[in-house]
Simulated assay, not measured.
Amino acid sequence: MRKLTAVVLVAGATLVAGQAVAADLPYYPPVIEIPDVDTGYAGSFYLRGSAGLNMMWAKEVNHPTNLPATTTTFAIDEWGYGYSIGAGAGYETGTGLRFDVTADYLANDGMQATITGSNNLADGPHKLQLRSTVLLANAYYDFGFGNNYGYGAAGGAFGYVGAGAGVAFNDIITTGPGDPDVHGKSTSLAAAGMVGVGYDFGAVVADVGYRALYINRLENNATTNPYSINNNWVHEVRGTVRYRFN
């Protein structure tokens, strides 16, 4: 009985002492760290490279006649075919908008006008060879395909639309029956519209799309057989790979 009484007294004293000590200690509330929310929106610079196949068409070619005030017009009756390769650098805002500048080397051969009844040119098919350096400033909007294929922090499939404007430096050669090759150079305004689909792998983004490239005027001011071709359209299917620098 004495032992039990002693144990109870010791326990009571310990409890009272513990409460007194605890009352003297300062109180620090627990710190709960809440991580920042990752919305997936972050800007980044990128480099890009592209390659594609193209077809070119215009309505007609204009040849001056012996009278300076008049022009003989011949319909273009064959498409030209070729390719393009290019590179560029840009910035994406992380909100779907991105911007870049591109330089493309474009080659196209075979666009044709069949000449008949001209005072200056031999009758028959006359073909164009075009080599252009095209510089464009472009803007795009990237968009996801819904919850299952969202375009965001986790990457995924996306679509895009875009537009660009700039300048084309053109080197042209014309071949035809009975005539020597005619060489010429010209500089023209250029513009483009783009649409396509792609996949975001993270640091690397790949896409394939269609580009309609407009070259305002191809012109050869040579002394012999000068000509001009207005409103040239180059239809391209291109693949592009971008590399991000975050």
Rank of each mutant, 00 (worst) to 15 (best):
G239T: 08
N108D: 10
V8I: 13
T187P: 04
A51T: 05
N170S: 01
R238C: 06
V182K: 02
A6N: 09
H235W: 09
N119E: 08
N246F: 11
L189R: 12
A139P: 07
L67A: 15
P64V: 02
T174I: 14
E236D: 11
Y141N: 01
P30N: 04
A11E: 04
L97R: 03
A203T: 13
F99E: 00
T223K: 13
A11Y: 04
V7T: 09
A163Q: 02
T14C: 09
A191Q: 10
P26S: 00
V197W: 10
A163D: 04
G88M: 03
G146E: 03
G144S: 09
D100R: 05
T93Y: 10
Y28L: 02
A139T: 11
Y83L: 12
L47V: 15
N225K: 10
G196L: 00
G43K: 01
G117H: 04
A87I: 15
E33Q: 04
G152A: 04
G96F: 04
N232D: 03
R217M: 09
F45Y: 05
A157D: 07
G117E: 00
W233K: 02
A153I: 11
A87W: 05
L9K: 13
R131T: 07
S186G: 03
D181H: 12
G159Q: 07
E219Q: 15
A6K: 11
T133A: 11
M1E: 05
P180N: 13
G176I: 02
A139S: 02
A206N: 07
D207G: 04
I173D: 05
D179T: 13
A153C: 05
P68Q: 08
D24W: 13
Q129W: 09
D24Q: 15
A107P: 08
A69R: 13
D171L: 00
N225G: 01
V10W: 07
L213C: 07
N230Q: 12
N170G: 08
T240A: 06
Y83S: 10
K3C: 09
A206I: 10
G156E: 00
V10L: 12
L121F: 02
R98I: 04
Q112K: 11
N66G: 15
A139F: 01
A190W: 03
N62R: 15
G52Y: 00
H235G: 02
A103G: 15
A20D: 09
N66I: 10
Y91K: 02
S84L: 15
L15S: 03
I173T: 15
V208H: 08
V195K: 06
Y81E: 08
G94N: 12
L218Y: 11
T102Q: 01
V237W: 08
K3E: 10
E78N: 13
N108L: 02
P226I: 05
G80I: 06
Y199N: 07
G196A: 08
P180C: 05
L121C: 00
T39Y: 14
T174R: 14
N66D: 14
Q112R: 14
L4M: 04
V208T: 07
A11Q: 09
Q129E: 08
V205H: 00
Y210V: 09
G156K: 07
V8F: 07
G209V: 01
L53Q: 07
A203P: 14
F201V: 03
P180Q: 11
A6S: 10
A192Q: 15
Y141R: 03
A206F: 06
A75E: 15
